[in-house]
Nucleic acid binder design. Structure first.
Length: 486
RNA sequence: GCCCCCAUCGUCUAGUGGCCUAGGACACCACCCUCUCAAGGUGGCGGCACGGGUUCGAAUCCCGUUGGGGGUGCCA
């Protein structure tokens, strides 16, 4: 199996059967942690590559040496791996290919398609404001015949007439008048290339067949294409511009405002499979309507051309639901393994979790919720939730009697097991008159005071199993302590 | 301002001219189940932005309006 095939986990036959298989790329820039928007972009690239037997290349766009934070590249790579969205071959770093972009820039200058400009951003903004026209660069230096220098940037001489059209798998045909394209910067005064230049040079050089990226790039596409033409590149990839992900204010998700880094969700106890599952549902949906499913099935069903074209709200509530579903579907040992890193008390918490793990598993939405659910089993003074206490002890019926009767009954128990505990508590309930019409114990009422006394809360895993795990000594001690407090 | 894109329940979506008195999921509400909470079950709430066309017939096609978003950086 080829190295590339191994990274994507593709069978060799699939990886080599066609000579002209699709080549896609994910091109993050290390200016921030990997966030859910980026993760969704990789996912759609990845799904299309996997389904079509294509390749997915990872390209780190680190040409802006000023803003670049190399340590973030590690996070991006880690998170991609953690999500299970691998790439083919070694990642490419644009910082290692600067010569390629400079050569392209030189060619553009030599052919008259680019010119040097010494306007500062402030100056061109001031001019725009003064003339009251549209913001943006006005072509001030177009014919000044400036040469390179410490404060000059190379700009592209955008075509003045004609129109640029491209086909988008998601949006159909998009046409833009070339006259609306401003003369954008190719080379910064520092000599480093900008996004558009590096982008087209690399996509063509790497023979990328499908450019799948966020909607925010739609407007840049005509510039990218004009640049390619000016470079004499006979290159036209297929485009697919994914709808942006938005927050509750319907604004594009931003790392600043919204806390949406993949790392953060990982730390909160989301499963990678759940994140990926949820993300696949944003801007796209399986034809059969089955939303909760493994990645492999998304590979089979996913079609780029079926992606929606309107922005999608990133709904944490729904992602939590998806996570809960994935958590419950886990084999118990696996659930324990995954929960372990979230247990801040180490061995003690592990020991506490073990006997009631299955009961906890079906009750948590996030792995971070596990510890709180078993906190009553820790060897330390019980923290009692006041609202729960009031509800069960003050407003609840016959709390003192119920506690007394349970203490007596449980103290006399031979076998300390969930079933015998249940029997004892039922008997206690009957003895204090907490019975239904048939004369059976009314456990829904009777369990309240006991639950709050022993676990500190009114909600939690089933009581009898919890008490079995708590043990006779601690159960009785807590029951007595609660009785005294009444 | 200019350019581009978008428009089905609160949210994510199904729907590609008749199968739609618009289907599913999340959220919410009620009931059932039940030792609490979850889970599960049943039901409910709730939508084709508006106006014109085209057509025997439009959520679906066309035009316009309105609304929203994205871009307009020596960020990507």
């Amino acid at each position: 199996m080829s190295h590339a095939a191994a990274r994507l986990g593709l069978p060799d036959t699939l990886a080599t059967v066609t000579t002209d298989r699709p080549r896609l790329r994910f091109a993050p820039s290390p200016t921030g942690y990997l966030h859910v928007g980026g993760a969704r972009t990789v996912l759609f690239n990845w799904l299309h590559a996997r389904r079509t037997g294509g390749e997915l290349i990872l390209r780190i766009e680190d040409t802006d040496t000023e803003r670049n934070r190399p340590e973030l590249t590690e996070n991006i790579l880690d998170m991609l791996q953690w999500l299970g969205l691998g790439w083919d071959g070694e990642p490419t770093y644009q910082s290692a290919r600067m010569n390629l972009y400079r050569e392209a820039a030189d060619r553009l200058f030599a052919s008259g398609r680019a010119y040097w400009c010494d306007c500062t951003a402030e100056a061109s903004q001031a001019r725009a404001k003064e003339r009251g026209g549209p913001p943006g660069y006005d072509g001030f230096c177009r014919d000044r015949a400036l040469g390179p220098g410490p404060a000059t940037a190379l700009r592209f001489r955008s075509p003045d007439d004609g129109a640029t059209t491209f086909e988008d798998l998601i949006r159909g045909t998009v046409t833009v008048e070339n006259s609306t394209l401003e003369d954008f910067v190719l080379l910064r005064s520092s000599g480093t290339p900008t996004f558009l230049l590096a982008n087209i040079v690399d996509d063509a050089d790497m023979a990328i067949t499908h450019v799948v990226r966020g909607e925010e790039h739609v407007n840049g596409t005509p510039k990218y294409l004009c640049l390619g033409d000016a470079l004499g590149l006979d290159y036209r990839p297929v485009f697919a511009h994914l709808p942006v992900l938005v927050n509750e204010g319907r604004q594009k998700l931003s790392k600043r405002r919204d806390s949406v880094s993949v790392q953060e969700f990982k730390d909160q106890g989301y499963l990678p499979s759940a994140i990926v599952n949820y993300l696949a549902l944003l801007g796209w949906g399986p034809k059969d309507g089955v939303e909760i499913r493994p990645l492999e099935e998304f590979v089979e069903q996913f079609r780029l051309e079926d992606v929606t074209s309107s922005p999608a709200f990133f709904d944490v509530k729904k992602m939590q639901h998806v996570n809960a579903e994935h958590l419950r579907a886990l084999p118990l040992p696996e659930f324990l393994d995954l929960a372990r890193p979230f247990l801040t008390r180490g061995a003690e918490a592990e020991a506490a979790l073990e006997p009631i793990a299955a009961l906890v598993q079906e009750r948590v939405r996030l792995l971070t919720e596990v510890e709180r659910m078993i906190a009553f089993l820790f060897d330390e003074p019980l923290e009692i939730d006041e609202a729960s206490w009031t509800k069960a002890m003050v407003k609840g019926k016959a709390a003192p009697e119920m506690l007394d009767a349970s203490i007596t009954g449980l103290d006399a128990l031979g076998d300390w097991a969930a079933e015998t505990i249940r029997t004892a508590i039922e008997a206690a309930a009957v003895s204090v008159g907490l019975v239904n019409a048939e004369g059976h114990a009314q456990l829904s009422k009777a369990q309240g005071p006991i639950r709050v006394s022993t676990t500190g809360r009114s909600v939690g895993p089933p009581l009898f199993e919890s008490l079995e795990a708590l043990g006779r000594e601690r159960t009785l001690a807590r029951l007595r302590a609660a009785r005294e407090r009444l």
